[in-house]
Simulated assay, not measured.
Amino acid sequence: MAILPIRHYPDPVLKQTSAPIQSITEEIRTLVADMADTMYAAPGVGLAAPQVGINKNLIIIDCSPQEEKDLIVAINPEIIARDGESFEEEGCLSVPGYYARIERSARVKVRYLDLAGQEVVREASGLLAIAFQHEIDHLHGLLFVDHLSSLKKGMFRKKYEKLRRQQEHEL
């Protein structure tokens, strides 16, 4: 398939709300395959369609060890229950080089369609719960840094701008 370009903060597409997928077409299947190639090459544990410039409710996740691929394809995912608290460090393929501790739910129940169009209700905890919350946020135009306090957001913007200038200089 193909490796797609990943959009980086502050690309405006990352702030848009995504549209529901009405039917699972060959175009969607190709997008899933391309997103998987992109995520594995990055490497990352999750990717949302908006991160590759596609405004659709589609996420993929694979939290398994690298040698064991276990790709989750979630179409029109929604969190239907949350429980507990987690405070873990997160990063994002759309915010390369920046990490922060983010408060999330420790456990979630998610409903989505799989690639065959079957409804799936899945309970998740640990890294998988964080990944679901992180990727579903992308579908609502939210990045993990949007969960930071005002003070930390200001610090992030300064630090990230400096990081971006360094990366551009290195090219």
Rank of each mutant, 00 (worst) to 15 (best):
L58F: 00
I59K: 02
I60A: 11
I60Q: 13
I61E: 05
S64G: 11
S64D: 12
P65F: 00
E67N: 05
K69I: 00
D70H: 11
D70R: 09
L71P: 02
I72C: 01
N76G: 03
P77V: 04
E78I: 05
I79R: 03
R82K: 10
R82L: 07
D83E: 09
S86A: 15
S86W: 02
E89I: 15
G91L: 08
G91N: 09
S94A: 07
P96N: 07
P96H: 07
P96Y: 11
Y98H: 13
Y99K: 12
A100D: 14
I102K: 03
I102V: 14
E103F: 05
S105E: 11
A106S: 12
R107P: 02
R107Q: 10
V110H: 11
R111G: 08
D114T: 03
D114L: 05
L115C: 01
A116L: 06
G117T: 00
G117C: 01
E119T: 11
E119G: 01
V120R: 07
V120T: 01
V121M: 03
R122Q: 15
S125I: 13
G126W: 13
G126S: 13
G126H: 06
L127S: 11
L127I: 15
A129G: 14
A131L: 12
F132Y: 15
F132R: 09
E135S: 09
